[in-house]
Simulated scan of single mutants.
Amino acid sequence: MFIPPIFRNFITHIPRTMATTNATILIPDISGFTEFMTTTELNHSTLAINMLIDAMIKAIGDEYEVAEIEGDAVLLVRKGSAPSREEILNTCMNIFNAFHYQRKWMQQHMVCPCGACQAITNLTLKFVVHHGPVAEITVGRFVKQSGPEMIIAHRLLKNSIGSNEYLLITEKLFEEEINNPVQDELEWVSSSEEYPSIGTVNYRFALLNNAREKVPELPRLQNDYCVDNTCYVEKPIPANFRDVYMIVMNIPGRAEWVPGLRKVEQDIPAVFIGSIHYCTFEDYQAVVSPLRMTLSDEQIFYAESCIIPRLDLSLVYEFVFNKLDEKSCFFACRFLNNGQSPIPEDLHAELSQSMQDLAEKLAAYCIQMEGSPFDPAFQKE
């Protein structure tokens, strides 16, 4: 039968229902990113979620199919008969440990004071596991699982459990091995939920507080450097201390205000302790990498390494942002020699002048941004 070309694309996108198959539905869901009020924080929370979900998926292996990424959650499907409770626990704990190890890594390496980045320490992970028949709907080249059991699994993410970190297994799946009791360290509690159009759903759940305490610790950061009595260059700036810090911390954006800097290149679009940034100046290239950041209500301290191969220099730059009031701060910066040999006097004088120029340019840039489309990320009512 001849089909006019105009209809061919339409026909290929008509949903087609495939045969129903039994499957295990596993949904790890992240909680904690809920109070973001600025675009910057939303962008940063998205980056954090992407890194966490990537770590979770790598921990799954080939056991489950990643059916969909649903914002802060991952929909995992395993076709076939129900897994044992031991298999479920192993899968969930692998994901749980990968999630919290990555969360700890991000917390240890972050240099951003925004709400999203600071909230990393509070992130939690919950699991919903269910088993039953699901239907696959094919739309073009996409396959989507659907059916009542899929709806039940998603509804269970909203429940009356007084915690955001737990493993929930529906009763029928939990009882698969009722004649072969499983011994584990979790304390299981029976509960149920009543949902409109679904009815009562019985389940067991166990809190994961103890499991979180057993997540491996990270190795200590290797970010020590020698400190001397080099004087700071100081400059008052009429801007909030957090906003001024964000301008300095935004290494890719420094070409807009740092004297002589033409461009910044980097391997990944993020700034964190250990990230590498290639800064091309008019007559040399510097390799910059953040070392540490400490934050309080009144001050931000930030340090980064700077290696300039052409000049055989290894430096550390320190930046201090002291709050004066909501709309002004006191900025200080200095360089330290992190190399084996003393810095020649003429080069030392040149570096000292560059620090002075940097402070002046930063202050001018902040004043220039006032009243422009520049939207301070952290000044909140």
Rank of each mutant, 00 (worst) to 15 (best):
I6A: 14
I14W: 03
I25R: 03
I25L: 08
I27E: 02
D29E: 04
T38V: 04
T39E: 13
H44V: 00
M51E: 15
M56L: 05
I57Q: 11
K58H: 13
A67I: 12
K79N: 13
N90T: 12
T91C: 09
A98L: 10
Q102E: 13
V111W: 04
A116V: 11
I120R: 07
F127M: 05
V129W: 00
G132Y: 00
P133K: 11
G140Y: 04
S146G: 12
A153C: 04
L173H: 08
E177K: 11
N180T: 15
L186F: 09
S190E: 13
S190K: 14
S190R: 15
S191R: 08
E193V: 04
S197L: 12
A206G: 03
L207H: 07
N223H: 06
E234A: 01
Y245V: 07
N250L: 03
I268L: 14
S275Y: 00
I276R: 13
I276L: 13
C279Q: 07
C279P: 04
F281Y: 07
A286F: 03
V287E: 13
V287H: 15
L291V: 03
R292P: 03
T294P: 06
L295I: 15
L295Q: 10
Q299L: 12
I300C: 01
F301K: 08
Y302E: 02
L315E: 01
L324Y: 02
K327D: 13
F335R: 04
Q340N: 11
L347A: 05
H348V: 02
L351C: 01
A359P: 04
Q368E: 06
M369K: 14
Q379S: 10
E381R: 10
